[in-house]
Design a protein around this nucleic acid. Structure first.
Lengths: 312, 312
DNA sequence: GAAACACTAGTCCAAAATGGAATAGGAGAG
DNA sequence: CTCTCCTATTCCATTTTGGACTAGTGTTTC
């Protein structure tokens, strides 16, 4: 046998990022590469595989049947590498690295812009992030960020962010649909849902006492990044924690019509294992992350009235 | 976050090959790279990980604690890539590739020297090999090479090779130990065992009617490649199918003292699923592989008397 | 004890791969 | 029609990779 044709690990990351972000340009930002580099890496993987992994549209990319299969295995491979890094980092006799498991949406929209502040403040603490790792590696992590109601046996859960959920959409899209003045107006529009957090719309309806969820249409997407992006593109209304879309709200790409939203019991939590000692670096990181999250939400709260006044 | 430090897929292959082959030079041969390239790739992975993955001795390399962890995840990652390739290959609307799952020892010692003959004879048939893939992918394969007694529910098993098992060792090593004229003489020596096929020595003892296995010492190794290599290095006696060591017997690196060995019911089988149609390419490959295996064993049988006469 | 053998690690250098800047071109929205 | 967002490609500089070769070490053989 000659040398097998394997993709590079950059190629795997590109494929995984494209699945999550939906466009070459957005994936490039997430990967800290240029649009041109990502485009070429995708082409290289597709040439190697011999099939297109994504279809191209003017709005971005969508996985093909082959792409869905390939993306799944790319994630398994990347997860194994995260596991290897995390487990080996745990063996260092010098100060062991902190092992964090983060959800994709938090990695992109919360850690990416802020983590450098932690590094500057604590250059001596090494942090190992995982996103794709399998559940056994997740359980080994020092900190696991989770979405839910805050109850995980064996784990202490500290509220992180996302309790305040807003109904949002692109301004022109909402205007074309006749505007939204009351919660039930939302059902005139297609709505977007993140598959892994499917309860939002029923919570929204329940919190406003408006009966069943009855939208014109519902589109389910695999990543919150894609939900947000589709909302910006005018493909539907979305329910999104305010803290995750501060820039889009400030920039006017998304608006929160009539200030509609609700307070969710399902939100993002910072969890730590109860059966392991809380060593100093872990405590330092938790304090920093929770404080930054509080600051994020203070900023979010301060912007809310401003956004409301811009709406009239 | 800046770009994560991921190993290259070549680095992963190097780490997995080193685990299997025990020396940089042997791994290089298996990978179709030079010793220098493999050495540099290993250094690059170890620099990235920040820990040594192998200890170096004058006889080769052995995994460290970190190495064992890393190797396991490297194999998971490579398995995922094999799965991706196999599943995507199955989607091609043109002639789908044959998906073969091969044991490491057969990949190295049987397919590596012979597969180019198949390619020359059938350039139009694409074959996808896997070795590391997880069990779900194995079950999807068109052909699975297995070691055992030939009974796997749902699979047709055709004898492939390995029924004739020889007691072998390095000539000087055997001479220093006083030679071997009878089966029980083997217990004066350390013996080597492949962890995944642990029954050989008891089968050897039973077939010669010599009671329990009572060697001076037993060393268990994770790969048959390492068993063969350790036998050549004079670290013990091994039981190995004749067909897998024709070159070593012919070259005198290993000898079969007193023609000792036995006929094993546990051997290598070519298995195909009963619940799927046997399409033409599959039949072509099976015919070729079984014919080549027959030829391998004819050659082996023809060499046996010659080796015996060289021994006196 | 010397020679031979098998091994790893490093240097030098050419080739290949990678990524960024820039550009071309397409599609949709305003 | 213009603007915006998008992908794909070209050009080029930089980085990475792998092979040839060498230096050095340790073990085995004679």
């Amino acid at each position: 046998m000659t040398r097998p044709h394997l993709p590079t690990t950059t190629g795997l990351r590109v494929v995984a990022a494209l699945a999550q972000h939906g466009t070459v340009s957005a994936a490039a930002q997430a990967l800290n590469l240029t649009q041109s580099a990502v485009s070429k890496q995708l082409k290289a993987v597709e040439d190697l595989v011999g099939l297109a992994l994504f279809t191209r549209t003017s709005r971005g990319l969508a996985p093909t049947e082959a792409g869905v299969i390939y993306i799944a295995q790319a994630r398994v491979a990347l997860g194994a590498l995260e596991t290897a890094a995390a487990r080996v980092a745990g063996l260092r006799s010098s100060r062991p690295a902190l092992r964090l498991h983060v959800l994709p949406i938090l990695g992109d929209r919360w850690f990416m812009p802020r983590f450098s502040r932690f590094v500057e403040a604590h250059p001596d603490i090494e942090v190992q992030f995982s996103t794709f790792a399998a559940s056994d590696t997740v359980e080994e992590a020092d900190i696991v960020f989770r979405f839910g109601d805050g109850h995980w046996p064996g784990w202490q859960a500290d509220y992180f962010l996302g309790r305040e959920v807003l109904l949002v959409g692109a301004p022109q899209f909402i205007a074309r649909g006749g505007g939204i003045d009351a919660p039930e107006d939302a059902w005139r529009f297609p709505i977007l849902e993140h598959r892994q957090t499917p309860l939002h719309w029923s919570d929204f309806a329940a919190s406003h006492g408006i009966g069943d969820v009855r939208p014109e249409r519902m589109v389910r997407l695999g990543y919150y990044s894609l939900v947000i992006r589709a909302a910006i593109a005018g493909q539907g209304l979305a329910l999104v924690p305010r803290s995750l879309i501060l820039d889009e709200l400030a920039g006017g790409q998304l608006v929160n019509p009539a200030g509609l939203g609700y307070s969710s019991t399902n939100c993002y939590w910072l969890t730590t294992p109860l059966d392991r000692p809380r060593h100093a670096d872990l405590a330092t990181f938790c304090d920093w992350a929770l404080a930054e999250a509080r600051e994020t939400e203070s900023t979010a709260a301060a912007q809310a009235p401003l956004a409301a006044s811009q709406r009239s």
